[in-house]
Design a binder for these strands. Structure first.
Lengths: 223, 223
DNA sequence: AATCATAAGATTGTTGACAATCTACATTTT
DNA sequence: AAAATGTAGATTGTCAACAATCTTATGATT
């Protein structure tokens, strides 16, 4: 096995899996905002003790996905439409613009290829009416965009904010006005990236994130 | 006691106090970047069990102040000068500008008064050469500025970033070029706030945060 | 009936013991 | 001596029991 290399084994622990499981339960809609989490119930269902469950809760609380006060119940967080529109989305946009400006100078053809792939996924999702596939590809596209900055810290903050927005949209139900718009909007961004025009990329990103998202939310101002 | 109201009693718990104690140890310089945290040692010194200590570690890990991997040691995080200059300070500035624009329309004379008080504290600190007093007042000024936006979520994100920056400056030692500049720089911002000129406030804030901080860091580019 | 007090049960917080894993050092092997 | 192997001790991860606090239901008091 001269040249062969095994891929690195990242040690894991119960609390990491539990954290991921709960997060997954939230983003799959099985746990909705306001739903209560009982440590006992969770640990019994998972077949583990309450210790690691509590640690997972602390992590998710810090991510803003859970709310918890001493001796009081823990519930899934809820983000008001106002907070999403006025705070979360503008912050997300700011971070993403910042990331893209950082990334643009040293972007490679591999990056373009990968972003292209995500757009293809969106197209296929749109064709088959597979909302989950579109959501996943949408997330993957933007996540990769931010990761291209190479700034771990930025990535972490962005993820936190993005997840909060995501949770709000999830509970709102309607995420996109028209599934077919999703790939085309991202294609515009990708094209601007290819041209290497930072200002244009930012302009299109702003269009995409701020305008479309907020318009989508504003439309349902009656609930 | 017709009109009187007691201040709310927020129930607390060991893990909160422990979290605060460790955070305090970091910001007081007793724990420096790279220093190792042993759960056993901490719990014995504090006279508590490891459970709440571990939960506190999870919280601080999520805040970016500690680094921890399964079965590996936990250490105090370190932020490179590059990361602080290129990422953390720009993000901090962005968030603070955002907060100030949100706050400006409904700012009150009470707010102005309070900010004024912090500047007085800076002056007294400068006169007595009390660095800690200046640092505290500086933090309090900006924290209050952000809190005036009324956006809890924004406040949380800002605090996280600010603490990371703070940790870096702490370890660098030299925080201000000249103690006497601190109150005057903040006075400029306060005056712009009084005028209610959002653009001017933002311009001065940018000057204050980006330029002075970064210049201060850049000066010591030899380490 | 509405308010207050009380107690039982449920839930979260904390603890000390045990298990899994890592680290550093000693031992062997080459 | 250098590299590989194998312990012993230290450290982190997990567990199950116990304590503190909250919540709810019940009954007493007005």
């Amino acid at each position: 096995m001269a040249q062969f290399r095994f891929s690195e084994q990242k040690a894991t622990s119960l609390r990491h899996k539990i954290t991921e499981d709960i997060r997954q339960a939230i983003f799959s809609g099985k746990l909705k905002p306001g739903d209560r989490l009982r440590e006992n119930e969770i640990s019994k269902q998972m077949g583990v003790s309450r210790g690691p469950v509590r640690e997972a809760i602390r992590v998710l609380e810090q991510e803003g996905l859970l709310l918890s006060h001493p001796y009081k119940e823990t519930v899934v967080a809820d983000f008001s439409k106002e907070e999403v529109i006025e705070v979360l989305i503008p912050i997300r946009l700011t971070l993403e613009l910042f990331a893209v400006r950082k990334a643009l100078p040293h972007i490679t053809s591999k990056d373009i290829e990968r972003l292209s792939q995500y757009i293809d996924d969106m197209k296929e999702g749109a064709r088959r009416g597979d909302l989950i596939k579109i959501v996943d590809a949408d997330l993957a596209f933007h996540e990769y965009l931010v990761s291209m900055s190479g700034l771990d810290n930025l990535m972490n903050i962005w993820s936190t904010i993005f997840n909060q927005i995501r949770l709000h949209f999830l509970v709102q139900g309607k995420m996109y006005a028209d599934l077919n718009d999703v790939p085309s909007e991202h294609e515009i961004i990708l094209n601007a990236l290819k041209e290497g025009d930072a200002d244009k990329v930012c302009r299109e990103l702003t269009n995409h994130i701020a305008d479309s998202n907020i318009a989508q939310l504003a439309k349902s101002f009656d609930d």
